[in-house]
Design a binder for these strands. Structure first.
Length: 570
RNA sequence: GGCGCGGUAGCUCAGUUGGUUAGAGCGAUCGACUCAUAAUCGAUAGGUCGGGAGUUCAAGUCUCCCCCACGCCA
């Protein structure tokens, strides 16, 4: 038994995520966590909402609510949806938690102590009307170069010329529209990441088994141009973690907060503290401090490719810079994007399916199965309704669901709602055991390596073995001349249902639970000995015929959904 | 413009360090079966592996050039 720490990239508090976000981090992380638990390992699976920053403030203002209240509500919304998708977090925390406040301030203090923080005085645009400093992207005006009237503070989208906010003609805040802007001097803290470049490069270089996607992005940021740059870790905002040097005030930093990308990954650690403080666990340090038991922990992070630089460089720089025994990530599993029907998912255009909408259409298992079996591991992947319909109908309803249906109903009709006895196993069963053993070993290999698509394909092949067995041995024919042999064959089929429930649980937990309930068993031991596993439900063991596990998606539904989620095109 | 991931059967995708007739699932066609959710099982057809040049006894797999899509950066 090993100890596994698993984190999923933490979703931003603002709004509900779409299926591409889901399959890029939380869902595969959940798959891995569930699998490792099934194998008997000790798992701590953490996630949280990322709550700070300007977008949260603006979203709250738009909703007419104080930002703290808005975040609390949206956290509950996201937690409920996560629950709806059966994401089995041990704790779903909040980056705004008191624990993260204290920890983030402690990290900053320690980094300052190590000489890795420097103060930088810079000029920024301040909107008097809005009462806040404006990030470049919240400033628009007319481009002095081409006359485009919606040039942003950092760049003109029309002529692509790089701009300084002060270059803009008639510059105004995109928040209020106000033109009452001033340039003010402000002071910020920078993390001297450049000092850590060598250590980070060595560390990345040592990760030979990481996905190419992960290391190539990291190396690009390390080496491009002038190399890894120092990074501002503070902002002039109200909503965030107040800048402090540990527990002490930080002279000159009054009224400022840490930058969201500084405190967000620290929430991975703080989330474990929340987990303990809420009574769900004990001893978070045994997961996060290598001097307090975490040296035997394997830590795996899941994220979309856009998050890779922060997890391969920024956060490790924070950790390494302290020279304290914090647990560093061992493996980063990153994902490409899921496209929606030939284009991108788009929140603003209402294009694509969002997590809450998905659950209104179909139970989570349908989405989990399709998304995981098409996870964008090697390149961007494509969601189409046609594919979703044919795949889920075939895999879930026909191959798995119908298998359960045919064997349970046949047994009820020819024998009873109990496992029949029959003769001992023969050649066909010995061969089935060999085939199952081989395929399950392959499945385990893919799951251990987090090869999500291949694991899904292997699992499907294992389901098919059951149908092949029934087809080849035809108990419905055998029954006419040799009911005892037919009884044994049915016994095999019923035991396969239990085995399938266990193997499939990480992908389709609800269907798995239904299968186990139908077989009236709580024995979920992983099938390491296939002969024993095929005898786990003994003759005489009662079961019941379940409702159909999966229904089919009709052509009408597919057409309706495709229309409904197409969004407004340009 | 620079960089990155890709471009393999109608569709979605696999193809380890270059090595026998390029694979899977779906879809299509044919057949078997009739226990089951008009389900299942089997067989067959389908590819000049984006284009071109090169290295090699041998290239989807390495090198160079070009084209296309997506993404990141400037």
């Amino acid at each position: 038994m090993a100890r596994h720490l698993i984190t999923s990239a933490i979703p931003y508090i603002n709004g509900i995520k779409h299926l591409g976000n889901l399959v890029g981090s939380q869902l595969p992380a959940d798959l891995f966590a569930r699998y490792l638990r099934s194998r008997g390992h000790e798992v701590l699976f953490l996630c949280a909402t990322d709550e700070h920053g300007t977008p949260a403030e603006l979203a709250a203002a738009k909703a007419g609510k104080p930002v703290a209240e808005y975040c609390a509500e949206m956290h509950d919304v996201q937690a409920n949806i996560a629950d709806g998708f059966r994401l089995s977090f041990d704790h779903f925390g909040r980056s705004s938690s008191p624990q993260n406040h204290a920890l983030t301030q402690a990290f900053a203090g320690r980094l300052a102590e190590m000489g890795l923080i420097r103060e930088v005085t810079e000029e920024q645009v301040f909107s008097v009307t809005d009462g806040r400093f404006l990030p470049d992207r919240y400033i628009e005006g007319t481009c002095p170069n081409c006359g485009f009237d919606s040039a942003r503070g950092d760049q003109c989208d029309n002529c692509t010329k790089q701009l300084d906010p002060t270059d803009l003609i008639n510059a105004h805040s995109t928040i209020s529209g106000s033109t009452d802007l001033e340039v003010r001097t402000t002071k910020h803290l920078y993390l001297r990441q450049s000092e850590l470049k060598g250590a980070l490069a060595d560390w990345i270089e040592s990760k030979k088994d990481w996905p190419i996607l992960t290391t190539s992005i990291a190396k690009k940021w390390l080496n491009d141009g002038d190399g890894l740059q120092d990074r501002g870790i503070t902002r002039d905002l109200d909503w965030g973690i107040p800048v402090k040097n540990g527990t002490e005030d930080w002279p000159g930093m009054e009224g400022k907060v840490f930058y969201v990308w500084f405190d967000a990954p620290i929430e991975y650690i703080a989330s474990a503290q929340e987990w303990v403080d809420e009574g769900k666990g004990t001893d978070w340090e045994s997961w996060w401090r290598t001097d307090k038991g975490a040296d035997d922990v394997t830590y795996t992070q899941f994220m979309g490719k856009d998050n890779v630089p922060f997890h391969t460089l920024s956060f490790p720089a924070t950790i390494k810079g302290t020279q304290e025994p914090w647990k560093l990530v061992d493996y980063i599993k990153s994902f490409n994007y899921l496209n929606y029907d030939g284009g991108q998912f788009s929140t603003s255009r209402g294009r694509g399916v969002f997590m809450d909408q998905a659950l209104e259409l179909l139970p989570s298992d349908y989405w989990r199965w399709w998304l995981l079996s098409h996870a964008p591991e090697t390149s961007d992947a494509e969601f189409t309704w046609e594919q979703f319909q044919t795949d889920t109908n075939k895999d879930l309803a026909d191959v798995l669901g119908n298998f359960v249906s045919r064997i349970t109903k046949f047994c009820r009709s020819k024998f009873s709602e109990a496992v029949p006895e029959g003769v001992p196993f023969g050649e066909s069963e010995e061969q089935l055991i060999v085939d199952l053993t081989t395929r399950v070993a392959a499945f385990e290999g893919y799951m251990d390596a987090i090869e999500v698509r291949k694991a899904a394909a292997e699992l499907r092949s294992i389901w098919v073995l059951g149908n092949e067995y029934l087809q080849a041995n035809a108990p419905w024919t055998t029954f006419k001349t040799d009911p005892d042999t037919a009884a044994m064959q049915v016994r095999v089929g019923l035991n396969l249902i239990r085995i399938y429930a266990i193997l499939s649980a990480p992908f389709i937990p609800d269907a798995s639970a239904t299968m186990l309930a139908a077989m009236k068993t709580e024995d979920t031991a992983w099938p390491t000995d296939m002969n024993a596993a095929l005898n786990a439900l003994p003759s005489g063991h009662a079961f019941e015929v379940p409702e159909n596990l999966f229904r089919k998606i009709t052509d009408d539904e597919r057409a309706e959904w495709a229309e409904r989620f197409a969004g407004t095109r340009d």
